[in-house]
Every structure is written in C-alpha cells, then in structure tokens.
Design a protein around this nucleic acid. Structure first.
Lengths: 343, 343
DNA sequence: TTGTAGGCGTTATCAC
DNA sequence: GTGATAACGCCTACAA
C-alpha cells in the first residue's frame, strides 16, 4: 500500500527507477507487462513500486501514447434508469482497467447539438464514445465521429451501422411475442400506442406489433392505434383517443412504460379495471413499471449487458467482430395482463 | 471551422507558431488570454488557429499544469433521476469550460468500496469529486479524499462538513412545513414512514416530522411510525404495519417517493381511497410521483441547481465561500392530500 | 511585448 | 534483457 503523505509530491517513474537502480524504460516495461524481462528484475521493481506507492500518471501516458483512456457517453436521456444502467454496464467492463467514463448529456432539440458535440469531442479527444438512442439514430452524428477519428458504438433497436459499431436489441421480435402472449390469454382486439415518428425504436416496435397481428390474423382498426411521444402526457392523449371509442380494444401494447402508466390513468378515469377490462403491456421495465398498480407487464431490454459489450467493442478493437451485436430482450410478466372479460 | 481531414495529424501549437511566424509561447499566450499581447499579434494568431482548426491537447496541458480538468461523480445511485439531474446540473456549470465529468457508481454495501475509490482516485488524478448521498455521509471517504489531495464537495441533507466542501438541502425545515400543510387541511393524526437507520437524510426528515408534530401539539403514537429502507418493498411492509391498526392515521408523511408509492399500493389493497381516506406526502419528486395515481404531493429538492453550485465550488475555488451552501426545497402540491373524511 | 530553454511523466527507437 | 536519448504538446521562468 502506498504510504505517501498529503502534500508530498507523487512519486514518478524516475523515482522508482532511481530507487530500484534500473532505467525508467525498465520500469515502464514492468508497468506494461513486457514479456522480455528477467523475473528478478521485475519483482525487484514491483517491490519498489509497492513501497513508494507509485501510480503511473495517466496524463503523461496519454501524451506519450497520443491517445487517452477516456470513453464518452453521449445521450439525450431517453430514460434516467436506462442511462444509469448503461453507465453501470460500462463500468462492469472497464473496472480494473485504466479507462474512465465521461458523460455528456445533450439536447437533441437544440440546433447546436452537433456543434456542441463537435466541440466536446475535439476538446476531450476521447478514446471512443457510446451513443444512446434516440440520438444514436442520427447519421450526421455518426459521420461527425468518423470525421473526428473518434471510435464509436451506437446502441439501437435495429441495425443502424455495421456490426463493429453497433449493439442492438431485438425490439421487433420481442414485441411480436408480446402480442403472442396477449393472444394466448384470449385477446383478439389489441390496440397500439406508438412512439414518435422518426424514432427507429418506435418504428421497430410498431412493426413487431403488426407482425404479431398478422401472424394471428387479428382484426386491425385504425382507431385502436394512436401516436405518442414517449412522454406521460402524450400517453394520456393517446389512451384517451383509443379508450374513448365505444368499441374499444381489450388490450393495448404501449411502446414505453411511461405512456403505459398514462394509459392506466386514463383507464381508471373511465372506470375501466386493469387488467379485467383492459390488459396493458409496456416497454422498458423502468422502475415505474413495478411501482404502479397493477404492476406492469413489460419488456426488459438488457441494457447493462449491452453496455458491457459495447465497451468491449471500443476497447478490445482487435476482436470486436467476435462480440455479439444483438442481445435479446425478455417479456416480464406481471399483473397488467389477464384474459378479457366475457361479454 | 476546422478543415482537417480524417487521418491527418491534429495540428499542434508548433504548427500554429510556425504558420503564424511567432514563437509557441506567443500562441500559448493567445490560448490562455494573456493580457500582454499586441492586438494584431493576437488576431493574427487567432486567424491561424481558426484556419488550421487547432484545438489544444488537454493531456499535454494537464501534464504541464500538473493537474487535469476532470471532475468525478461518486455515487451509490440513490435514485436514477436524481443522479441524472445532478449530472445535468454539473454540465450546466462546466459547459464552455475545458472540464469534463467522469462518473463512478460504487456499491456502498461492498467491503471494497473504499479501496475501489482509492484506486479510482489514484489512477485518474481528478481535479475534484462530487459525492452524492448516502455515501457523502461516509467520513472515511471524505478522509480518503483529503489524504489523496483530491478536492471534494459533499451533497447532503444536513451540515456534514465545512461550507466550502458542502452543498446541502433543508430537509428538516421542508418536512416540518409539509406537516403544516397537512394540519392546515385538517389532519391531526399523522403517521411517518422513515428512511433507514444511519442515513442523515432519514434522520433529518424524521426530525422535521417531529418538529411539525410538536409545533401543532399533535398526538404522537408509536404505531403510526414505521421504519423503511427507501425501497418499494420496505415501504409495503411499513405501510402494512401502520394501516393495519384499527386506529390508523388520516395522513402519512413518507420519507421518499418510492415508499410513498408503496404506501398507496397498500392503502388500495385495504380498500382505502387516497386522498379521501388517507393523505400521503412523499419526498424527492421523482418521476413516479407524477406518474402514479393519484399524483403524489411531494418535496422537490433542487438537485440540478445544487450540482451547479457544487461544480463552481470545485472549479472557482477562489470565491467558493461566497457561494451558498444550502438551497431550499419546495413542496409540490398534487392530488394525494385532501382534508380527512368526517367520521 | 515576445522568445529561448527547460521541464512535466510517460513511451518508442535503437543501440548495446 | 536493458538503457541512453529523443519524442509527445503544452507551460513556466527568465531573458531580451
């Protein structure tokens, strides 16, 4: 353990070299685990390193290697829990390395977003960046990373880029199987609350929904289908529209949990019981899903695992193509789905 | 705008100096806004900087200055939204500076937490760190930062440290005023679900509760008072206990929103209407608060503003003592509080 | 007001 | 296997 006292200068590689009676290049070799070193030279140096409590200076290292060990996270906060889980997943991967994770929330509605990010990437010269949806779908942003020679991995719900730059989930398939679940419970009249136009995730989830509907030859009605913005308020409007119909569906798939919670509010307001009168399935498995009443059946995407894989793609670029690009989501069955009431 | 192409070496200060026909020290002076420069020298150099798309290398700068421009965030994820709001607040403060924010989630239940953090701080040599509650209450952690000569600011719900190392909220006062609010609505029988033993926030909120109770000369009963762990599940147990009594309170103050949501679940299970039969006030103003039914009256603490202030304390250490150390929380009135039903 | 020399702590090159 | 020596890109001290 280091025994340096406060205020003392941190020991440098020169101190270690001097005390150990070797050249600093040799110390450098020890640090970097060079194979061509005599065992006793190595252990002697290691002993001195431990005695002095020497820790290599990352800035000096970064300068000499002409690259630093910082990974960046660009996101527009699709959901706080998701972003935080992602951070944890990256940390799982970089723990015990010299990498660190720097975060950069951005605003996709700002006209300056790309300039801000350019400024950030130029100033920080990151080793690589993660890009979360929805901004991962922005092609100009990906082009910017390439222009600035900054490695990147895009997280997404569909194939946005070539596999080495991508980690995706299988939104479309899992939503189709959520529909299967509803059909197994006896539902034939199923509605959809969608995410915003222009989001790939929204598109994929809708296609999954339609796959499910077609697969079972279900009736499809335009009035059971409403657009949303992935926000609670937009969920209220959408559910109002769908549940206002006399001839309403017995179940709804909602493209995220926040809007699903909104749909429950609306159902309650109209005197409908969930799940007896209306079954609801959400998407994300955010904390609300388990905290509302009844607890929400929803889709969990393995964001933490996806983050770890993404980190490895950035770091171990040698075998990045051996890493998977697609990780499976799962349907979490809770209490917001039940067989429809007999009429 | 920079016009450098991919694969080209980034221009350095030497390139700028050569093209501009000045020494690199002069370029350095331009970058660092030294006042003693002739205006036309300055503008000439600035022109070349713009033409070349030169951006100073932060690693080289960090090496020369013997300190980097990285701020760290140590947290044990008390609440995803809180952590993310904090990150946004820090970003508000460091936008347009050269600082970046690196995150480090830790596990306060791990026996290795302090070693992990030591390792992290030694390796990264941060400019300073933010410490979020509950680990901000850990004195060993603060001591570690001092030992490693790492500036820090602790976020808290009470005075944990001297003002320059601290940004706090006024939990105790605001909870007392939440009790005032309940009393104004006509409540006289008020219960409490507490946070975990050993958390300062839990302690402060309880004291605030008791202040309120005493101030109005209300009856206090041990069976209206239950411990919790700030988790949904613990909230279920606590509410079960309190609401199981025949002689239950007409209102409960719950120390965080997650447990408040749980209390609503329990009330519903017992056939109690919120707010008619039971008023509930939470704490945090997390997203659940507005997404459950009925929307929860709760306390919002100004985490984003607190983060900005904390960042300035770290960065502008000159006038850190001019910055406030205590920022006021506010009571957000929604629909979970109403006058008690007449008996 | 500007330039020169030297140092920050590391790694790479190339001898020995 | 190991060690001089020279980068890496910036800043400070001091000289002019």
């Amino acid at each position: 353990m280091g025994t340096e006292k406060r205020g003392e200068r941190q020991p440098t590689i020169n101190d270690v070299a001097r005390v150990a009676g070797v050249s600093k290049k040799t110390v450098s070799r020890v640090i970097n685990r060079s194979p061509l070193l005599k065992d006793d030279t190595r252990s002697k140096v290691e002993q001195v390193i431990a005695d002095l409590g020497y820790v290599p200076n990352p800035q000096a290292r970064a300068l000499a290697l002409r690259r630093n060990f910082l990974l960046g996270l660009l996101h527009d906060n699709p959901n706080a829990q998701t972003v935080l889980n992602f951070q944890e997943g990256v940390l799982d991967a970089i723990r015990d390395t010299n990498f660190a994770l720097v975060v950069r929330p951005v605003n996709r509605h700002s006209p300056d977003m790309l300039d801000d990010i350019r400024d950030f990437l130029e100033k920080q010269r990151l080793y690589g960046v993660f890009i979360l949806p929805p901004i991962s779908e922005n092609e100009e942003l990906a082009a910017l990373c390439r222009e600035l020679d900054c490695a990147y991995v895009r997280m997404g719900s569909t194939q946005l880029d070539s596999p080495q730059y991508l980690v995706e989930s299988n939104d479309r398939e899992i939503v189709a199987s959520a529909i299967d679940h509803l059909v197994e419970m006896g539902h034939r009249r199923i509605g959809l609350i969608e995410g915003p136009e222009g989001f790939r995730s929204a598109y994929e989830r809708r296609e999954g929904f339609l796959d499910g509907i077609r697969r079972h030859g279900l009736e499809y009605r335009a009035q059971w289908h409403a657009p949303g913005q992935y926000t609670f308020d937009s969920g209220i409007d959408a559910a109002d529209r769908i549940l206002g119909e006399a001839d309403r569906p017995t179940a709804i798939f909602v493209s995220n949990d926040e809007m699903a919670a909104a749909a429950m509010h609306v159902a309650r307001g109209k005197g409908l019981l969930v799940p007896e009168d209306l079954s609801i399935i959400g998407f994300d498995d955010s904390p609300i899903a388990s905290h509302i009443w009844p607890p929400l059946t929803t889709v969990r995407w393995p964001i933490r695992e996806m983050a770890s894989v993404a980190a490895h793609k950035l770091i171990d670029s040698v075998d990045a193509d051996k890493l998977p690009s697609r990780l499976p989501s799962t349907l979490i069955r809770r209490s917001s789905v039940a067989p429809p009431r007999m009429k």
